[in-house]
Design a binder for these strands. Structure first.
Length: 545
RNA sequence: CGGGAUGUGGCCCAGUCUGGUAGGGCACUGCGUUCGGGACGCAGGGGUCGCGCGUUCAAAUCGCGCCAUCCCGACCA
């Protein structure tokens, strides 16, 4: 079905490509139904556009760059916000021409550090990307919802079990987004969902509810005490040396966000979610602070940082809100402080949700129980806002004659990845089990013995009938033993198989076998085509129900 | 970019340690038998042993360098 040409670069052979075409057509139908218009943009894009949006420098090494013979810079498009925004700003002048939603199905290239799992995470891949342009927030929201619903229809028609989850906007940028994940244990993305309400989010985005603040009464506070902790730096070491649980230690992590130093407090057994922190700070870049920076704000080497007297801004995760008599670093080499308390010893200017959700947390919406699952991301919808229209000045004249920026949204679907995800989600020991809508062929005709003229003629007649009826049929006319043909048909995952054999044929019958269930039905020769027609129609209908 | 492994007919691999005429299985071609869940017999075709340099009478095998691929990590729509 597919063959690798180079790392993360694949050819689609006849059967694989038929499935790709099926997926593309489902997407086309649903996008058109949702009011989007298909276009086709260049895969190769000039550097100027990317410099205009600012992403030429920001996108990093994933962007494949090269020069032409005139030494001009180009890239192979990993996405098309710049190109489509350029088209729209040139073509659209007035609110009368809006809203617009343009999409394309294109080969993209992202120079992944490590492509893996075949076509699941390749460098060159086929993607449908759509871009919406609206006059105001309200209209943009509507466009977003229309796309959201179109996506649900698309994935349902592809026969997939999926879930839409709230997601981080990442490098594309924008105000909010949803990922569509196909549930699969082998999936690369972790998600969290509530078992009582419909809350579902990507793990890096999933919120932790703010706890209720319960100040510790003065009389419960033990006197703070500095203790000598020579060469004791990590949470484990501190915990073992002082003899307290990690849940009684407050960890102080120093980060560098866009060049500014910031200290984050979190309970000793928790980890900071850097995506959340980055978003909270509105930072472009975020990394752990260097040793000299730590020395500057704490006056001590790495391993003894604490909130008391620290010389940089301070933010605390909710996890420390109701702790009492806890241990922190003393900002002095080889010392920690015991029985530290909030209010008395440490003033917290701001609390925030900065850690990753874990088992036992409650749903941030309804307080219900949350559960974890893994999935494969097959689609992503973003509300972009004016990020690109600002950078590239995509404006129009509104009803009142004033110039305004277009509100954008962008919507991607990994076409080649859907094929991989469908196989991942639906296979057995004998091979693929395609849903009717994605199968390269709906039915395969297996002639048990091609050496038998009567039999092979009967099989060919059925094939011609099916084709005439407009069904997608594959005729296995190879001169192979029956067992070989059966195994191959199973491996390919064709949903229906007509077996033409001598015994049944003598009775005027053929067998129809269902790949998914293994069920076999004996059907009179004359009714075979009709039976296949109605089965195909029924399967297609069932998928949408 | 770090750590590990592997490069031998189209595919999977043995042979490398201990240098001495390149092998097996699958696939392919021909003939015969077989023929409803991956048949069998006989006869064939096909390999610069990843590339380069070196050691040696002699290199798939030993040494050095390079390249490619895969796995693990950091990274990431």
């Amino acid at each position: 079905m597919i063959r690798k040409l180079a790392g993360g670069v694949y050819s689609y052979l006849p059967l694989g490509y038929r499935t790709i075409r099926k997926i593309e057509n489902i997407i086309r139908e649903e996008m058109n139904r949702a009011g989007a218009q298909e276009i086709f943009m260049p895969a190769v894009q000039p550097a100027e556009l990317w410099q205009e949006s600012g992403r030429w420098d920001k996108y990093g090494k994933e962007l494949l760059r090269f020069r032409d013979r005139h030494n001009r810079d180009y890239c192979f498009g990993p996405t098309h916000e710049e190109v489509v925004t350029d088209i729209v700003r040139n073509e659209i002048q007035t609110y009368r021409q809006l809203p617009k939603n343009l999409y394309q199905i294109q080969t993209k290239f992202r120079d992944e550090i490590r492509p893996r799992f075949g076509v699941m995470r390749s460098r060159e891949f086929i993607m449908k990307d759509a871009y919406s342009f609206d006059v105001d927030e309200e209209a943009a929201e509507k466009s977003y919802n229309v796309m959201f619903e179109a996506y649900e229809r698309i994935f349902r028609r592809c026969g997939m079990i999926f879930r839409a989850v709230e997601a981080d906007t990442g490098a594309i940028g924008g105000s909010y987004s949803h990922e569509f994940l196909v549930t699969a244990d082998s999936g690369e993305d972790a998600m969290v969902y509530c078992t009582s309400c419909n809350y579902a989010a990507n793990l890096e985005k999933a919120e932790v509810a703010a706890p209720e603040e319960k100040p510790v009464p003065e009389q419960d506070m033990l006197p703070a005490e500095e203790v000598h902790t020579p060469d004791v730096r990590t949470i484990e070491e501190v915990s073992a040396f002082i003899g307290v649980s990690p849940t009684d230690i407050v960890k102080t992590l120093i980060f560098n966000a866009d060049g500014k130093t910031v200290a984050i407090l979190v309970r000793g057994d928790e980890d900071i979610n850097e995506t959340k922190l980055k978003n909270y700070l509105g930072a472009g870049s975020l990394e752990m602070a260097a040793d000299d920076e730590i020395m500057k704000v704490t006056g001590s080497p790495r391993g003894f940082a604490g909130p008391r007297g620290i010389r940089c801004s301070l933010i605390a995760d909710y996890s420390i809100m109701n702790m009492k008599n806890f241990v922190v670093g003393a900002n002095r080499e080889d010392y920690h402080v015991k029985n530290c308390n909030l209010g008395r010893d440490v003033a917290i200017p701001a609390y925030a949700d900065l850690r990753t959700v874990r088992k036992g947390d409650r749903c941030p919406r309804c307080g219900g129980e949350i559960s974890f699952a893994r999935g494969i991301e097959v689609g992503h919808v973003f509300k972009l806002g004016t990020k690109y229209s600002t950078a590239m000045n995509a404006a129009f004249l509104d009803r009142d004659g004033k110039e305004k920026l277009m509100i954008m949204g962008c919507y991607g679907i990994g076409v080649s990845r859907i094929a991989a995800a469908a196989i991942e989600q639906s296979h057995d020991d004998d091979g693929i089990v395609w849903p009717m809508s994605l199968a390269p062929f709906q039915v395969i005709i297996t002639a048990v013995n091609m050496g038998d003229d009567e039999l092979s003629q009967a099989a060919e007649n059925i094939y011609n009938e099916l084709i005439t009826e407009g069904l997608e049929a594959l005729f296995d006319d190879r001169d192979e033993r029956a067992g070989v043909k059966f195994k191959d048909a199973d491996l390919l995952g064709i949903p229906l198989r007509i077996t033409v054999g001598a015994k049944r044929l003598a009775e005027g019958n053929v067998e129809v076998r269902f790949r998914k269930t293994g069920e076999v039905r004996v059907i009179p020769l004359s009714e075979a085509t009709g039976f296949i027609r109605s089965t195909v129609d029924e399967e297609t209908r069932k998928i949408m129900a």
